[in-house]
Design a protein around this nucleic acid. Structure first.
Lengths: 346, 346
DNA sequence: CTGAAAGCGCTTACAG
DNA sequence: CTGAAAGCGCTTACAG
């Protein structure tokens, strides 16, 4: 049924190998025969069989995307579609196909990765997460398969190519932003401590608190699963403290939206009674009321740079390691306000 | 470098063809040799080369996902991650790999589809959109490639396998829900009329208005691009009418969130002054204030059934056409309220 | 129950 | 500048 290289060859009166060279646009073929072969391809509606090509030259022109486990929660976070968009754009520019993992548990995903790699389905992989003690990462390192991590790996930073924000800096700056508005009681609501991003942002928060000479309080730091219904618990806890915080650093826009709702239910208004700053700057932060001041981490760029550097790595004859830092900046909206200190109030 | 079937064969002292049969778990091989071969595979860490297998048996165990064009807007709609999740789950169950298209324009996407199909990269495709006059669809039909559409195709309904909601019914019921709450001035804010889903929901709205003996008014029906910053224009237009609507049917949760914001800016409160019902029931509808009453269209199921029926189609020896209707139901939250009719007000 | 051989549709030294 | 031949790693009639 399918038109093969042989059909083209016989129509153009050349050998199959010549057709192959025309496809590759080899400089060793005369323009004249190239033309003849091309019109034969046109006439027959020939398209190269990519599978056969892969087998022959041991390159797939395909990239594997490893999604985090617990797919259900993850996909709901607008982070993923956006990073996918960046990856997709880069893939298209470089004519790479994209393969997605589909497993839900860590073990399933690991098996899939092994399949992709050993089954020679992909030339390299992008890990769309970064977590402590990851067997996928270990496996890829051992086998010396090209891969890049979106986010900062927990260890071996120097030997792994990754694309990340300066989340420490982002956490520090967000906190400093609140400090500059006069806040002294600033709490931090973070996601899972299994995620390196949480750790980094929290450390930045710490640093800012210290630098400003504020007292660090354990009870001001709470953690909730990312995406949980608004971190209700966390907010209740914080608001029932004797020294209520006057400002919150929230690790994620979606979580911040939930925090906003909980505060609303408690009749605490933002930014009048309490200021809120969050991270990621996804569409939701604009649509929230009040619109959220959020740290833009340029998610698209994270994905785009990830695939660019993966392709560089695949094409390069020697093993290159690169760390790419995507810039961030605070986008001011309506959720933060200068505090009226009691002493200053007339 | 890679371990091949030959290595396994010589270690196990059998022919390569026997190893192949063991992999396929053919009943024609004795348990004894199966065991021997399997332990050889284990010992060598053998994994079949999927590419080579594809070439030999002309099946790829991979499915292509065709994303809508204008990827930028699309990925931001929570519809896509959710439908992807359904597809991914089904793919994993059936051990199918997933390929994503990466093109942005219609033409790019078309070329990619041709590549996937003629390059024998996939056994079938899922179209994650449905629009008027789609060349991809026409191409797949002509070539008799297995595919399924998520959404209702614009024409040729009977010959195409698709998975859809009863969007006509959903539009009608949403409108009836408002009518039952006593509303008579009900407006419709829809997305692009290029999308079949918009047309269906609008037609349902029409029907409900007619059935109830209410007068249909042209000025009550407005269209905005899906996802546009809240359909601000649309809301202004409607609210400046002499006969202001008392209820809105909004085609999409994200759009409804924008509508909510615009109303808020105009100091019109929901549901006291105006009721709002929308569609899709994504996470955002819960997080909005007031929480949105929304028609749950079971997006996950849409994706899950799509891939199931695609795989059925691929595995079936004859061409089967199926139309699957995913149920929907109204999820009541806080954005709708019984109207206080003037005549009834004491 | 097992093996030898041809074939899937390409690419790529090697030779001329 | 072009061709004949071997090979990529599997599968599958065919034969026994």
């Amino acid at each position: 049924m399918g038109v093969t290289i042989k059909d083209v060859a016989s129509l153009a009166n050349v050998a199959p190998s010549t057709v192959s060279r025309v496809i590759a646009n080899s400089s060793r073929i005369s323009e004249k025969t190239k033309k003849r072969v091309r019109s034969a391809m046109e006439e027959l509606g020939y398209h190269p069989n990519i599978i056969a090509r892969s087998l022959a030259n041991k390159s797939t022109q395909a990239i594997g995307l490893v999604m985090p486990s617990s797919a259900d929660k993850v996909f709901q976070n607008p982070f993923f579609p956006e990073v996918l968009r960046g990856i997709s754009t880069g893939a298209h520019e470089k004519k790479q196909a994209l393969y997605m993992s589909t497993g839900e548990t860590e073990e399933e995903i690991f098996q899939e990765v092994v399949q992709m790699v050993q089954g020679r389905r992909v030339d390299g992989l992008i890990l769309l997460y970064s977590k402590v003690d990851d067997q996928v990462l270990t496996y890829l390192q051992e086998r010396d398969i090209p891969f890049v991590v979106v986010g900062k790996p927990y260890k071996d930073n120097d030997c792994i190519t990754y694309v990340d924000n300066d989340n420490f800096g982002a956490g520090r700056e967000a906190t400093e932003y609140l400090i500059n508005l006069g806040h002294e009681n600033i709490a931090f609501i973070g996601g899972s401590l299994q995620l390196v991003v949480t750790i980094d942002r929290l450390t930045g928060y710490d640093k800012a608190i210290q630098n400003a000479g504020l007292t660090y309080r354990d009870e001001y730091v709470v953690h909730e699963e990312f995406l949980q219904r608004g971190g209700k618990e966390a907010v209740y806890e914080l608001m029932s403290l004797k020294d209520r915080p006057t400002a919150l650093v929230v690790a994620d826009d979606l979580m911040a939206l939930g925090v906003l709702n909980t505060l609303d239910e408690m009749n605490i208004s933002v930014p009048e009674d309490i200021s809120v700053i969050s991270f990621n700057n996804v569409l939701i932060s604009e649509l929230a009321r009040p619109a959220l001041t959020s740290v833009n981490i340029n998610i698209f760029e994270l994905g785009y740079q990830a695939i660019r550097s993966l392709i560089d790595q695949i094409e390069s004859p020697y093993h290159i390691v690169k760390q790419i830092r995507i810039p961030h900046e605070i986008v001011e909206r309506q959720s933060c306000k200068r505090i009226n200190k009691k002493s200053v109030t007339s």
